[in-house]
Nucleic acid binder design. Structure first.
Lengths: 207, 207
DNA sequence: ATAAAACATGAATCAGTATTCATGTTTTAT
DNA sequence: ATAAAACATGAATACTGATTCATGTTTTAT
């Protein structure tokens, strides 16, 4: 509702405190969950007084939102970096998945926060996925035009890829801590290249 | 912690009240979210007094859990019914997705509750996905053995399929209300049969 | 018909915690 | 060096809402 966020801190000390509190909030929210996490928990972790948090953030909801926006930027930065030197779109998808999975294993808070966000702040959560989607579709469309992919529905493909990335991310960060990344990437690669239907020519093209 | 749940109601009236409150809880939780939903909201919707809820459920957490378990059963029932008369595994997957998507459009509370569950009661949420996974893998493995699918990593395939189902479910129930189901099913079918890589023989086999 | 069990009520309790604020300290600008 | 602005404190406030419980009603069993 309130569109005017707190102004940026004016001094170096201020910027540091804000960053300190934001980092503490990320940890606490991902470890305890939004509801269980109290302002006292966050400021204790950050080593400040409770009131200090309100110098930089309007409310518990707003600080959560800032945490999510920050993570969103990190996720997108990480994935675009991954695909920079891919040879073609299939390769880009595969590298993208691998980098992504390694990222979420390093930063398991990512998925916790995104999941919380779906519940705590649905608008921000939608915007996050919409942004990912909006950047994804043109890549897939262009790749199909260049014949690096078969022709197909780029939008639906984007959602399917995002679905695979998302669940695999949850899986490795929450369940197996990264030990299955290689298997996952191998099978994903095979899905993109051949689907999962029986293949006609058994062992000819590795392409 | 407390493993002893409330005993089953002894009378018809009791069973009806319990069902009434459970249905109200599903609606209220999915509309308002777990945190915002109060016991008063639930009992108001159910048309009973607040205390009545505590005759049948130990706590707000427990009633949420019961809602989730109930939905889990419905989801599994619906999807197994869908694939009963599929001709092969690829066909089963495609029918499964379509039925599934139509189900979540009819019952949009499904995804809201599952998402909430990831945050509110992580144990139950994990058990839900684990159960889906445990039932899925043997089907895929058996199908590969019968050569209805190519050989591959059945476990990773199961997670990828679940990821696609999940995101598409969220997508149609939350975003577009079912109008894109046909497009989605078509593209999904194509992914399973051919992948998304360029195809060697342009227009030969519809299989 | 009657006692016992089961079910139902809703106002009062009570614990937790987000937010404020009066007071102090540090930094910046002149 | 000094005033003003920015930053920091943490105890007190204020509110919410889950849970309880004393009391009443309905159903079941005999």
């Amino acid at each position: 509702m309130n569109m005017i966020a707190k102004p940026q801190p004016k001094t170096k000390r201020g910027r540091e405190r804000r960053a300190q509190i934001l980092a503490a909030a990320e940890d606490v929210f991902s470890e305890m969950g939004f509801t269980a996490a109290s302002i006292a928990d966050i400021t204790r972790r950050a080593g400040t007084a409770q009131g200090t948090l309100y110098l930089y953030f309007d409310s518990k909801d707003e600080i959560f939102r800032e945490v999510m926006l920050d993570l969103g930027r990190q996720i997108r930065r990480e994935s675009s970096r991954a695909i920079e030197d891919a040879t073609d779109r299939i390769d880009a998808e595969i590298r993208g998945l691998e980098t992504y999975l390694r990222f979420v294993v390093r930063r398991p808070s990512v998925y916790r926060i995104v999941q919380q966000c779906a519940v705590v702040d649905r608008t921000t959560w939608r915007e996050f996925y919409q942004t990912v989607f909006d950047r994804y579709v043109p890549h897939l469309q262009a790749a199909a035009d260049r014949e690096e992919l078969s022709q197909g529905d780029a939008e639906v493909r984007a959602w399917m890829m995002i679905g695979i990335f998302t669940l695999m991310g949850e899986r490795v960060s929450d369940w197996d801590n990264g030990k299955d990344i290689d298997r996952i990437v191998t099978e994903f690669s095979s899905l993109l290249r051949y689907g999962i239907a029986p293949r006609d020519e058994p062992t000819s093209n590795t392409r």
